[in-house]
Simulated scan of single mutants.
Amino acid sequence: MGFVTDEVRARAEKYTGDELCREKTKEFLKEVDMPNGLLPLKDIEEVGYDRETGVVWLKQKKSITHKFESIGKLVSYGTEVTAVVEVGKIKKLTGVKAKELLIWVTLNELVLEQPTSSGKINFRTPTGLSRTFPVTAFVVPEVEKPAVAKEAIAN
């Protein structure tokens, strides 16, 4: 985890448990204006976020491959995903690869080209290659939590 030092870990907000980690992942993505479906991880064991440096890490039980249906792209997420985040940008990304034709290419930076829900997001590789897709391809509709009736609270 290279830049996830003991100092960063000590300072960071840390969460464990799949459900809470998924919620916190969506929260930090929203905080940096990135689409909420960008990290569709499963069985997450730990999420950490150091707001001071922007360092984020996510650990999941096993690697997964996710297909973003609307753009027909496969993306592989390793057991550890790390990054440095700022508004509209995820940089120094590790643990994420995308399938291009017949090969898997490492992604190391995601940048919003037009920071709106109708904008574009650019995926960059360490070699300088990049692809741009609509932000909407990575947005998952939010499920509203049902309102708790006052009667249920009183009981």
Results as ranks from 00 to 15, higher is better:
residue 103 I to G: 02
residue 80 E to W: 02
residue 150 K to N: 15
residue 122 N to G: 03
residue 69 E to C: 03
residue 66 H to M: 02
residue 126 P to V: 02
residue 107 L to F: 05
residue 29 L to H: 11
residue 44 I to L: 05
residue 122 N to Y: 00
residue 21 C to N: 10
residue 113 E to Y: 06
residue 109 E to P: 05
residue 106 T to A: 06
residue 99 K to S: 10
residue 118 S to T: 14
residue 22 R to P: 00
residue 50 D to K: 05
residue 35 P to A: 08
residue 51 R to Y: 07
residue 76 S to A: 09
residue 124 R to W: 00
residue 125 T to A: 15
residue 147 A to I: 13
residue 19 E to K: 13
residue 141 P to M: 11
residue 125 T to C: 09
residue 115 P to Q: 12
residue 28 F to T: 03
residue 124 R to K: 11
residue 14 K to N: 05
residue 145 K to T: 15
residue 81 V to P: 00
residue 46 E to Q: 08
residue 90 I to P: 14
residue 146 P to V: 10
residue 36 N to I: 07
residue 29 L to M: 08
residue 127 T to L: 09
residue 105 V to G: 06
residue 146 P to F: 14
residue 80 E to D: 04
residue 62 K to Q: 13
residue 133 F to K: 08
residue 52 E to V: 13
residue 29 L to V: 05
residue 147 A to K: 14
residue 43 D to F: 13
residue 24 K to H: 04
residue 90 I to G: 08
residue 50 D to L: 09
residue 38 L to P: 05
residue 37 G to P: 09
residue 148 V to A: 14
residue 98 A to P: 00
residue 108 N to V: 05
residue 91 K to Y: 09
residue 18 D to A: 02
residue 122 N to A: 14
residue 115 P to L: 11
residue 88 G to F: 15
residue 74 L to M: 06
residue 83 A to S: 14
residue 59 K to D: 02
residue 14 K to T: 12
residue 129 L to Q: 11
residue 77 Y to T: 01
residue 38 L to W: 02
residue 29 L to C: 09
residue 129 L to D: 15
residue 126 P to A: 05
residue 150 K to G: 10
residue 72 G to W: 14
residue 100 E to F: 15
residue 135 V to E: 09
residue 102 L to E: 06
residue 54 G to Y: 07
residue 48 G to L: 13
residue 24 K to I: 10
residue 101 L to I: 07
residue 123 F to P: 01
residue 57 W to K: 05
residue 50 D to P: 10
residue 119 G to A: 08
residue 96 V to G: 10
residue 138 F to E: 14
residue 32 V to P: 00
residue 63 S to H: 02
residue 25 T to H: 05
residue 64 I to E: 01
residue 127 T to H: 07
residue 100 E to N: 12
residue 105 V to F: 03
residue 110 L to G: 04
residue 44 I to S: 01
residue 91 K to H: 10
residue 148 V to D: 12
residue 122 N to I: 03
residue 130 S to W: 01
residue 64 I to L: 12
residue 38 L to I: 07
residue 116 T to D: 13
residue 122 N to D: 04
residue 57 W to Y: 14
residue 85 V to M: 15
residue 134 P to S: 12
residue 55 V to K: 08
residue 113 E to P: 00
residue 25 T to M: 13
